[in-house]
């Protein structure tokens, strides 16, 4: 099969299988792109999510562009991205045209509740797989725990409601994914940047 067509089709498959935000596509990416096609490794996926997290654009699209570009340059990046949005175009257009009450249909709601429960399990399994390749030493585990605690704390506390004043605004920024990623990059630089290569591998 033509490589570009293969890229498009694979990412269209990823698009169809994703329910929810960009994170929900991770288990599908691991299966299709890492295990089946070998276009990226688990480590590279975490890199793409990290960069996608703090660059403009939604994560799902950023990740698709990244993988496509790495595999086949600019045409690859464009085709992977077009592939990931293609199913949305068809499905959403059909639903908007014929079934605008789609989300209110009881069967849809029940099925979606089931899907969401499965997606939680899929993400958990994916994170455990990623952790195997990204959490190999004490420093990495420490960074993981700190970021996890801050991110969860930030989501639960809802600092952006204004109820906490200026301190709330500061805490809201500190616990935002983009800022946490940048801070972790600085920590990585401080920990490993000054030494000769090969650390932590």
């Amino acid at each position: 099969m033509n490589i570009y067509f293969d890229l498009f089709l694979t990412f269209a498959k990823v698009g169809v299988c994703t329910f929810g935000g960009g994170y929900a596509m991770l288990p599908i990416l691991q299966r299709e792109v890492v295990e089946k096609k070998g276009w990226a490794t688990d480590e590279e996926l975490t890199d793409y999510f990290a960069v996608g997290q703090c660059t403009p654009g939604i994560i799902a699209v950023n990740t698709a562009t990244f993988i496509g570009y790495k595999y086949k340059g600019i045409p690859g990046g464009v085709l992977a991205t077009l592939g990931v949005v293609f199913p949305s175009l068809i499905i959403i257009t059909a639903i908007a045209a014929f079934l605008s009450n789609f989300a209110d249909i009881p069967v849809v709601q029940h099925a979606l509740a089931g899907i969401n429960a499965a997606v939680v399990a899929l993400i958990a399994a994916s994170v455990m797989k990623l952790g195997k390749s990204t959490l190999k030493n004490g420093a990495a585990i420490a960074v993981f725990l700190c970021v996890l605690a801050l991110a969860v704390f930030g989501r639960l506390a809802n600092f952006d409601t204004g109820a906490y004043g200026a301190l709330g605004t500061a805490l809201d920024m500190l616990t935002s994914p983009a800022v946490l990623i940048v801070l972790a990059g600085v920590v990585g630089f401080l920990l490993y940047g000054g030494r000769k290569g090969g650390e932590g591998k």
Binding site: T46, V186, V187
Partner: peptide
């Protein structure tokens, strides 16, 4: 390379946090 050594565990944590909030 050093920067990404720091990013990877953080990225994994953010995915875990997103999973927890869906959960």
């Amino acid at each position: 390379d050093a920067v990404f050594q720091g990013l990877r565990p953080a990225s994994t944590a953010l995915i875990a946090a997103a999973g927890l909030s869906v959960a």
